[in-house]
């Protein structure tokens, strides 16, 4: 029997949404079962959430005070002990999974497939290289497959499952050389960080001025979105350059990207090509941004912002 184990990402209280995306990828493998493991100090609440993910057979709950915080060197030996029952072990390709999985793989003498974006078969995968400018199709060598799942490539599995939760104890020696000191949540202020934001509202030269950018900020705050800008807007002095999205600025992959008054130079598009849904609002119907936008609206951006704010 071939089974896949997905490592749950959580903060002790809530399951991170990336887990359900990794489960979607695991389901694509077409194996006999998808199990999820929750490693926590007190993980029953998280395990219950994981049990609801559609397609999960069993949730393994491994509780240990050492698992209070997700420290790779401490979690890795526990996963290694569990891996013997599985043909595949996957984790989301978040900083959590990226930190943890290679440590597991190396101990077990296995290579790792990073950032799986498509499953072709149980051993053949697509993954991006060169910052997404090329995609390679790779075949894992025979034996245990260890990988991380590019979350932007998978929709979260839905939430109507009812897996059983099994408490497990694992026999592993845990190191004491790594101590968690603290976590300071990012962003600084209420507005999410551009690179981490699930939604981004972005303005271009069409916004017209620094003063006018207030409308962009206002909409962003209403949506709980980060604020981005095209290089033209940055060059024109409308907004500081740490907001710049594109080849020379930040490369981002939010679920929703709303571009206001951005023409869509290729340099800008290079920074958003992995966005989930792109919405473009521009007066110029010929603007290149419409060639990549999922939803385009030819209109005055200020009127659109006003109406959107009312509708939200």
């Amino acid at each position: 029997m071939s089974k896949v184990l997905v490592i749950a990402e959580h903060d002790g209280a809530n399951l991170n949404g990336s887990t359900a995306r990794a489960v979607s990828c695991a389901a694509d493998l077409g194996l006999d079962a998808v199990d999820v493991v929750v490693l926590a100090a007190d993980g029953s609440a998280v395990a219950e959430q994981a049990a609801k993910i559609t397609g999960v057979s069993t949730v393994l709950l491994v509780q240990n005070p050492a698992n209070e915080n997700a420290v790779a060197a401490i979690l890795a030996p526990q996963i290694e002990a569990l891996a013997a029952d599985y043909s595949h072990v996957l984790a989301p390709s978040t900083t959590f999974g990226k930190d943890l999985m290679p440590r597991v793989a190396a101990h077990l003498g296995r290579p790792q497939i990073s950032d799986i974006m498509r499953v072709e078969s149980a051993t053949v995968f697509d993954r991006p290289v060169y910052a997404g400018n090329a995609v390679i199709t790779v075949e894992a060598p025979e034996g245990l497959v260890i990988g991380t799942v590019r979350t932007a490539s998978y929709k979260a599995a839905s939430n109507d499952g009812s897996a059983s939760v099994e408490t497990r104890s694992v026999d592993a020696t845990l190191p004491s050389h790594t101590r968690f000191v603290g976590l300071e949540s990012g962003g600084g202020g209420d507005r999410p960080d551009l690179q981490a934001a699930a939604k981004v509202v972005s303005g271009g030269r069409g916004v017209g001025s620094e003063e006018n950018f207030k409308a962009i900020y206002s909409l962003a705050d209403k949506l709980g979105a980060g604020v981005g800008a095209s290089r033209a807007a940055v060059d024109a002095g409308f907004i500081p350059n740490d907001h710049q999205v594109g080849q020379t600025g930040k490369i981002i992959a939010p679920d929703l990207y709303m571009a206001f008054g951005i023409s869509g130079a290729i340099q800008h598009l290079a920074g958003i090509k992995d966005a989930g849904t792109i919405v473009a609002i521009n007066k110029d119907a010929d603007a290149p941004i419409f060639e990549v936008a999922d939803f385009g609206l030819v209109a005055d951006l200020f009127e659109v912002i006003e109406e959107l704010e009312k509708a939200l």
Binding site: P128, G132, I136, T137, E139, F290, G296
Partner: peptide
């Protein structure tokens, strides 16, 4: 890990 092929990423289509 064997690399079978390298391809250009899929282009986004206009919506």
């Amino acid at each position: 890990v064997k690399v079978i092929k390298t391809t250009a990423p899929a282009k986004r289509e206009a919506g």
